[in-house]
Simulated scan of single mutants.
Amino acid sequence: MQFGIFTIGDVTTDPTTGVPMSEHERIKAMVSIACKAEEVGLDVFATGEHHNPPFVPSSPTTMLGYVAARTSRITLSTATTLITTNDPVKIAEDFAMLQHLTDGRVDLMLGRGNTGPVFPWFGKDIRQSMELATENYQLLHRLWREDVVEWEGRFRTPLHGFTSTPRPLDGVPPFVWHGSIRSPEVAEQAAYYGDGFFANHIFWPTEHFQQLTQLYRQRYEHHGHGSADQAIVGLGGQAFIRKRSQDAIAEFRPYFDNAPVYGHGPSLESYLGQTPLSVGSPQEVIDKTLTFREQFGDYQRQLWLMDHAGLPLKTVLEQLDILGEEIVPTLRAELDAKRPSHVPAGPAHPRRPAVSS
């Protein structure tokens, strides 16, 4: 079982002080958070890709390359890489390069993107996003597995006798997760290729993501990659932790209420009841996270959003200390002990040992 964090890189004014963070400060804070994640024993750090304010991570491979030089063990990933607006040739090259630089401790999560104005900025039409995602991944999948590629499609110029360089490390492509918050077509695509499916269920009720994950598992088995319970599943989440739950709720509430993604909407209590958001004591976060296995089955990767909505860097680093020292060791032991022997652990390049308890 792999545990880690993901960041969406929002630049949000701290609602308790009214003090904004600069883009420079936010980018540097993301690096500090990634290094802290390794220090406290987490397995994965992932960064999103956004090209519009109030978000700054427009170049996740640049960020991950820099973090790779500052770390030695943690797996580096994206959450997500936009398969629709990025050229699949460039994705193939960038992540193969990261593989070599990190000795295999890199993978990626593909997503379509859901911000309409971004598509024309890159010469694309959001109305074709699903077709773009399907065709671009077909090409990306081949670029990592075929030394010489012949390709013709709808959305890019043909490739004739093309070789993507560098080749994947040891001939093993980076592991791919397909991230989705709404689309059954994405679950089908992940199942067809035998890739991972990541349900970032931090926004909508759990039942919605249970349906998507169940579909992915059924289709994974249908396509002959293994039994449904062997499918590779990752889950999102969000947590804020203090020794006493009352203190956690009181401290986190103003940040929740003003969050750029879900603020000014349903109450904190509503989110706590319907989504994986955990705000409380370490034991409460442990107990809620353990329910994810009951809801989704055995899974391989758990990522939390910890640095959203203007939380000060000092607070985020404190949160990571608690996560690494008091929460993840218990979850790792309990979930690994419950996982049947035929269900795989979290994906890793052959040069990287799989995470175990």
Score class of each variant (00 low, 15 high):
residue 3 F to P: 00
residue 4 G to I: 02
residue 11 V to A: 14
residue 11 V to G: 09
residue 15 P to H: 15
residue 16 T to S: 06
residue 18 G to E: 05
residue 21 M to D: 14
residue 26 R to E: 11
residue 30 M to N: 11
residue 44 V to W: 03
residue 45 F to E: 01
residue 50 H to I: 07
residue 54 P to R: 06
residue 62 T to D: 11
residue 66 Y to P: 09
residue 69 A to D: 01
residue 78 T to P: 00
residue 82 L to R: 02
residue 93 E to S: 14
residue 93 E to D: 10
residue 93 E to G: 08
residue 95 F to M: 12
residue 106 V to T: 10
residue 114 N to A: 15
residue 119 F to G: 01
residue 120 P to A: 11
residue 120 P to V: 09
residue 125 D to G: 03
residue 128 Q to Y: 13
residue 131 E to G: 01
residue 132 L to R: 01
residue 133 A to E: 03
residue 136 N to Y: 07
residue 136 N to D: 01
residue 137 Y to A: 10
residue 143 L to E: 01
residue 144 W to H: 12
residue 148 V to T: 14
residue 152 E to H: 15
residue 156 R to W: 05
residue 158 P to M: 07
residue 160 H to V: 07
residue 163 T to I: 09
residue 168 P to M: 09
residue 172 V to Q: 06
residue 174 P to I: 02
residue 183 S to F: 07
residue 189 Q to G: 01
residue 191 A to P: 05
residue 193 Y to Q: 04
residue 194 G to H: 02
residue 203 F to R: 02
residue 204 W to R: 08
residue 211 Q to F: 15
residue 213 T to A: 10
residue 215 L to S: 08
residue 217 R to A: 09
residue 218 Q to P: 10
residue 231 A to M: 03
residue 232 I to E: 02
residue 258 N to G: 10
residue 262 Y to T: 12
residue 266 P to C: 14
residue 280 G to L: 02
residue 280 G to C: 04
residue 284 E to A: 07
residue 288 K to P: 01
residue 293 R to A: 07
residue 298 D to Y: 11
residue 303 L to E: 00
residue 306 M to L: 12
residue 306 M to K: 03
residue 312 P to C: 15
residue 313 L to H: 08
residue 316 V to Y: 09
residue 324 G to N: 02
residue 328 V to C: 02
residue 337 A to E: 10
residue 338 K to H: 04
residue 342 H to Q: 05
residue 343 V to S: 00
residue 343 V to Y: 02
residue 345 A to H: 04
residue 348 A to V: 10
residue 350 P to Y: 09
residue 351 R to L: 06
residue 352 R to Q: 07
residue 354 A to L: 06
residue 357 S to E: 11
residue 357 S to N: 08
